[in-house]
Design a protein around this nucleic acid. Sequence first.
DNA 1: GCGACAG
DNA 2: ATCTTGTCGC
Length: 208
Amino acid sequence: MAQQLALAPRVIGHAPPGFAPTTAAGLDVAYEGNTGRLAAAAVCVDIATGEVVDQAVILDQTDFPYIPGLFAYRELPSLLKALAALTTTPDLLVCDGQGRAHPRRFGLASHAGLETGIPSIGVGKNALGEFTTPAPERGSWTPLTDDGEVIGRTLRTQDGVKPLFVSVGHRIDLDTATNLVLTLCRKYRQPETTRAADHLCREALKGG
DNA sequence: GCGACAG
DNA sequence: ATCTTGTCGC
């Protein structure tokens, strides 16, 4: 927790000048029961078309348990290995979990962004913090707050589906993050990046 | 002290 | 996250 508090101030909440990402990498991990065995995947897609342009998956082991607030210490090491296995460097990272929407404003997405220097976004299916339900139409959103501070937003990615929680990871702003997530959610609730990474690591865990 | 608690 | 049958809806 002390390390998170020390690193949080280094997070940049705005995009680089002229930021116009063409590729985005989805990151996800699949676990094998209670053993520490896991598969971590990184799938890079063309943001304009949604097509997969690069992908990598690695088998790994972890001994760090799942602890709310310390999620990155369990998944990030393996995710970085998967990222390093890509043949290209993505322009954006889409993480499964929170970025700034974290007790110490330093969730997995922020940690991943700071470690790699790549702009990143946090996309969670659940969140800590307070919020009201957004309108049922795709694209509608409401702020996600904590202690009166806006730490992210709920985002309806398709008509009538449960909202996702978007927050700044690193080197991006909330509006840009929201628009990119919406663009990546072409036909389903989750971004194509997340869907592809999820599928890949699950298959790898079975086979390997 | 009690409940809640990203994946 | 993972386990796990039936069931609702397009």
